[in-house]
Write a protein that binds this DNA or RNA. Structure first.
Length: 337
DNA sequence: AACAAGCGCAACCGCCTCATA
DNA sequence: GTATGAGGCGGTTGCGCTTGT
């Protein structure tokens, strides 16, 4: 049975449409003095002929005192793109990283401004991957540069002498740790998926793109092999995904890829899967490291939050923009055929 | 100046989740 | 275990403003 409207039989009497200044004042005045513990009863108590849901939306999206209005800064825009590439359309989650901005505002901004920009650059605004249907390819040189950057990072990560007793590489060497290394691996995987020529049809008219893809894949694979060797990277499962054997899920008897299937189709990919796995395991997720040590992470406010944070904030993480890989994506990295 | 088209954004709609009885 | 309802979320709509012709 369908749920009745939130305002029930009073619906036809309830005002809809734009709010007047007088209504705004009433709502602000009431919430300032009494707060909002029950949105359903609030309109009546505040003297408003509005549905409680409408009041809530008006307050959270417009009247709240901590709302930052005005144009989004470049920094905010970059952050939104980064967040969206990881969280997909989870606007409320994205909004938590932008103080003063509402999910609705971010959603509108993305759908009107950012989406257009990405499309113009040949990037699919939903998947954040290049749109092959528009004969547009990413600058190979830049991608190989990314792979080389990954290489040097992996060299440090793969050497156990670089870690302290906490499993973290000291700042003096590099501000990173195994988790960051895994994030980089995830990047590599994304790139491989992006450019894996086997995903192109043999009838593809874009031979040049395929050749470049093949070249890039070879470069990247060589770079990764040099950096990590078989001790760090293994070929996992039939999909050819690269795995990091240091991190093993509790259920899996063999290495579980941290990096495959990060396709954002369901808004999360592998990281979301790990979270779900953690939830199904009483919010715990055990990490078994190559040196025999283990650590258990919790889902809520725990390791996965940290993971997410790292993926979102790390300047070196390619798909997330920042000052590292693809730092100039905004300006020049796309080459039109 | 008048009109059409496009754009931006506030607001709404309907579904989902979760707490509670 | 189930039903119910409030709150939350993402998708969509529609109106007013701007820009182009």
């Amino acid at each position: 049975m369908a749920r009745p409207p939130c305002c029930g039989e009073d619906e036809e009497k309830v005002k809809k449409g734009p709010w007047t200044a007088e209504e705004d004042a009433k709502l602000v005045d009431y919430i300032t003095n009494k707060g909002h513990t029950n949105w359903k009863s609030l309109p009546k108590l505040a003297g408003l002929n509005r549905c409680g849901k409408s009041c809530r939306l008006r307050w959270t999206n417009y009247l709240r005192p901590d709302i930052k209005r005005g144009k989004f800064s470049d920094e905010e825009e970059r952050l939104i793109i980064n967040l969206h590439s990881v969280l997909s359309n989870k606007w409320s989650r994205i909004a938590t990283y932008l103080p003063g901005r509402t999910d609705n505002e971010i959603k509108n901004y993305y759908n009107t401004h950012i989406r257009k920009k990405l499309l113009q650059m040949g990037i699919d605004p939903q998947t954040h991957k290049p749109r092959t249907d528009h004969r547009q390819i990413i600058n190979l040189t830049q991608l190989i540069g990314a792979a080389q950057q990954l290489n040097s990072m992996m060299m440090l990560s793969s050497n156990s002498n670089n870690y302290n007793t906490n499993g973290i590489i000291p700042d003096g060497l590099l501000t990173t740790n195994l988790h960051e290394a895994a994030a980089k691996v995830q990047l590599a995987q994304n790139l491989l998926h992006l450019f894996n020529p086997t995903t192109a049809t043999s009838a593809s008219p874009f031979l040049a793109q395929q050749q470049l893809s093949q070249l890039f894949c070879n470069q990247l694979i060589n770079t990764l092999a040099t950096a990590g060797g078989s001790s760090l990277m293994v070929n996992n499962s039939s999909n050819g995904a690269l795995a990091m054997p240091g991190l093993v899920s509790p259920e899996a008897s063999s290495s579980t890829s941290l990096v495959h299937n990060n396709n954002n189709v369901n808004g999360g990919g592998e990281m979301e899967r790990m979270k779900m796995e953690a939830e199904n395991n009483n919010n715990n997720y055990q990490q078994n490291f190559s040196d025999g040590t283990t650590s258990t992470a919790t889902h809520v406010g725990g390791e996965y939050e940290a993971w997410e944070k790292m993926l979102l904030m790390d300047d070196d993480f390619a798909v997330l923009g920042g000052s590292g890989f693809f730092s100039s994506w905004k300006d020049d990295h796309l080459v039109l055929e």
